[in-house]
Design a protein around this nucleic acid. Structure first.
Lengths: 134, 134
DNA sequence: GTTAGTGCAAATGATTTGCAAACAG
DNA sequence: CTGTTTGCAAATCATTTGCACTAAC
C-alpha cells in the first residue's frame, strides 16, 4: 500500500508560521520569526518554530542559508526549482536568481577534478538599492 | 600616527598551528585542528586554536567555510586570490577552483537587481575520486 | 481514544570572554 | 621590564532534547 501518508496535522501554530513566511521576502532567523509571530499575537513556542522551520526546509518549502556568524536564516521561495539568492546584508531582503549557466559551470569544474555526486551552494551578498541609498 | 602596527609575536603555539595547516589539504574544524595538534605532541590550548584560526582567516591566510550544521571549517590555501572550493563531503579533501567567469556572472546578476557592494560565497560539495571508488 | 504536535525547562556543543600567569622582544 | 599571548574555567547563545500535556482527527 502506498496510502496518502498519514503524517502531519493542521495546527494553529503551523498556520501562523506559514502565513508569516508568506508575507515576508527576507531571510529571517528562527529567533526573528518567533519574535515576529509574537508581534502578530500568534502564540507559538520557540521550540515549535525551530522544529517547523527545519521540517519546511527539509520538504523544500523554505530555503535556508547561513549568516556569516553561522546562524541559520529561512525564507519562503517562489520557485521549487534550484536557484540562488541575492541577499542584502543590511536588511535581509533578497531576490531569487536562477542559473543554468552556473549549474553547467560547477558540473564541469567538478568533473574536471574527478568529483561526483555534486551539489553546490552559492549566495551573493550585497546592499540592496534601498539600503545603499542611505 | 599610523605606525607599522607593533602587534604579533612569534610563539611556539602559532608556529605549530601554521605548520599543521601547511601540511593539511582538507578543511578542518577548530576542534579537529586542536586534536591533530595534540597528536603531534604540540600542546596548544583550544582557546588559542580558536583565536588564531580566526585571526588567520581575517588576515586571509586561511579560508573559512561552514559545514551544513553551521560549524566553521578552516583550510590554508595556495592562492591569495579569490577562489572557491570543491570539497569532498566524505573526507574533507578539497581542491581550489578560481573563476573569472563566475565573478562576472555574479556581478552582472547583482547589478541587474540594483545590488551594490557585492561579495559572494560558493562551495561545491561532492565525492572525491578516492571516496567514490569505495 | 490515539497519536502527532506543542512548549517549558534542562541539556548540548561550538565558540567567546574574564583574568591571572607565562613568555617574547 | 612591559605589553602580548596563553589557557583554564566560566559564560554565551543558538539549537536540541526529555517529557508531560494538549489538541487533531
Amino acid at each position: 500500500m502506498v496510502g496518502p501518508g498519514p503524517v502531519s496535522r493542521a495546527t494553529r501554530q503551523r498556520a501562523a508560521l506559514a502565513a508569516l513566511m508568506d508575507d515576508v521576502d527576507s531571510f529571517l532567523s528562527a529567533q526573528e520569526v518567533h519574535a515576529l509571530l509574537r508581534q502578530r499575537d500568534a502564540k507559538v513556542g520557540l521550540t515549535t518554530v525551530y522544529r517547523n522551520l527545519q521540517a519546511m526546509a527539509d520538504r523544500g518549502e523554505v530555503d535556508m542559508v547561513r549568516r556569516a556568524d553561522g546562524e541559520a536564516l529561512y525564507r519562503k521561495c517562489a520557485t521549487e526549482e534550484h536557484h540562488h539568492h541575492l541577499v542584502c546584508r543590511n536588511c535581509g531582503f533578497s531576490v531569487e536568481v536562477g542559473s543554468d549557466e552556473l549549474e553547467r559551470w560547477t558540473k564541469k569544474a567538478a568533473r574536471r577534478h574527478g568529483f561526483s555526486d555534486i551539489s553546490h551552494d552559492l549566495e551573493i551578498f550585497g546592499l540592496c538599492e534601498a539600503c545603499s541609498r542611505r
